[in-house]
Amino acid sequence: MQRPPEQLGLRVRVMFVSDRADPEQVTRQIMTSPEFAADMAGFDTDDIVDVQSVLLDPTSFSPIR
């Protein structure tokens, strides 16, 4: 059953990982973890329409630089 757009939830996860880490591997590890499962409890996974990983470059004033 498709929900109207106003009832769809948006979940965003921001992670800081080593620049030597493989983003796809990190994503797989997180999405199969018990902590991720707990975060998603009560959320109908059939409603997931897209999963994206986006690499962000820190700005010059970023505390992680």
Rank of each mutant, 00 (worst) to 15 (best):
F43H: 08
D50A: 14
R20L: 14
I64R: 04
I48P: 06
V54L: 00
R28F: 09
M31I: 07
S18C: 12
Q29T: 00
L8W: 10
D39E: 14
D44T: 03
P58T: 11
D44E: 10
D39M: 10
D47G: 05
Q7S: 13
T59K: 07
A41Y: 07
I30T: 01
S60G: 12
V54I: 07
M31T: 15
R28P: 04
F16N: 10
T59Y: 08
R65T: 10
V54G: 03
P34A: 04
T27K: 08
S33D: 01
Q25K: 11
D46Q: 14
L8N: 12
Q2N: 11
M1T: 09
A37S: 08
Q2K: 05
S33M: 02
L10W: 10
A41D: 07
F36V: 02
E24Y: 15
D44I: 04
R65A: 03
G42Q: 06
L56A: 01
R3T: 13
R28V: 04
S62K: 04
I30F: 04
A21W: 02
V17W: 08
T45L: 11
F61K: 06
F61V: 12
P63H: 10
L10V: 15
D57W: 13
L55F: 06
V14Q: 09
V14G: 09
A41I: 07
T45M: 13
T32A: 11
Q2T: 14
A37M: 06
P34L: 02
R11V: 06
V26R: 00
T27D: 05
Q25Y: 14
Q7F: 13
T59F: 06
R20M: 12
M40V: 03
T59I: 04
M15R: 05
G9M: 09
T27I: 08
D44F: 08
V54K: 01
R11G: 05
M31V: 11
A37H: 06
P63V: 01
E35K: 02
S53W: 15
T59G: 06
G42V: 02
D47I: 08
I64V: 15
E35P: 02
S60P: 03
D46L: 11
P5Q: 03
S33A: 05
S33T: 03
D57G: 05
D46V: 10
D44P: 06
P58N: 06
M15L: 08
D44M: 01
V51W: 05
V54F: 00
T45I: 14
D57E: 08
Q52G: 14
V51F: 00
S33F: 03
S62N: 10
V26E: 03
T32Y: 02
T59N: 05
I64N: 12
M15E: 01
S53Y: 13
E35Q: 09
I48K: 12
I48C: 13
P34M: 02
V17F: 04
F16Q: 09
D19Q: 10
E6A: 13
D50R: 13
M15S: 00
E24C: 11
M40Q: 07
A21H: 00
L56F: 05
V49S: 06
P63W: 07
V12T: 15
R3H: 13
F16V: 14
D44Q: 06
P5R: 14
E35V: 05
E6M: 15
R3A: 10
